[in-house]
Amino acid sequence: MSAAALLAATGPLDPAARSFLSPTGVEIVFLLVGIAVLGSAVVAVTTKQLVHAALWLVAALGGLAVEFLLLTAEFVAWVQVLIYLGSVVVLVLFGLMLTKAPIGRSPDADSKNRWVALVVALASAGTLVTLVVDAFRTSWIDLGAGGGSAAVTGASLFRTWVLPFEALSVLLLAALVGAIVLSRGAGRRVPAPRSGRIRAGRPVGSNGTVAQRAAAAPPAEAPETAPAEES
């Protein structure tokens, strides 16, 4: 969602003398939600409890969706909820539960890189804020209803900004391929799991010679000798 598209959709800039001292209700709500988002984001980073951090992230991302709504960017808000709340955070929680996420404080929750991370965060925040402030200065954008509807967003995305969009999708594809390559490991073949037969057990009633022979055989041969049965 770009500012230019928003401007194109919502009408001309009106740098007329609007007072910042008499805010409307929407502006007050926007500010309060913004404070809440900031607060939950800070807690998400600083809390020592891993799952709490993920849940505070839920609050922050949900608050962000509300901010989008207040800016009439309806479609972006729902995409935010669908992708970030519905999928990304669920994935994060899934990962946390699969690994070690004790109830209570995690002693190793702190990273040694925290100061570096803080510097990077401050730098990127500074860059973004400077950019936005410099781009808009005191211009006033009237947000008409429907300015962020799916039709408008789609039109600007696939007409004006189609090249960055495609570049981004290629980037995501590259990330996907990279993730698959990493998860497959370097040249190590994992034997397919055999289902429907007892592993390495000796047949009931035999005197164990079968099991001994199986144990004596080199383990690298095991997946080949055993018929790889799917399903």
Binding site: V79, L82, L93, A101, S149
Partner: peptide, 28 residues
């Protein structure tokens, strides 16, 4: 009536699952 109603519905339904995840994790 919501303009992107289909998206809204699918998105919000996905959020409910977080509740089940919370329940599963927090029960110890």
């Amino acid at each position: 009536a919501i303009d992107a109603g289909l998206f809204f519905v699918l998105a919000v339904m996905g959020v409910g699952v977080i509740g089940k995840l919370m329940a599963g994790w927090a029960s110890a």
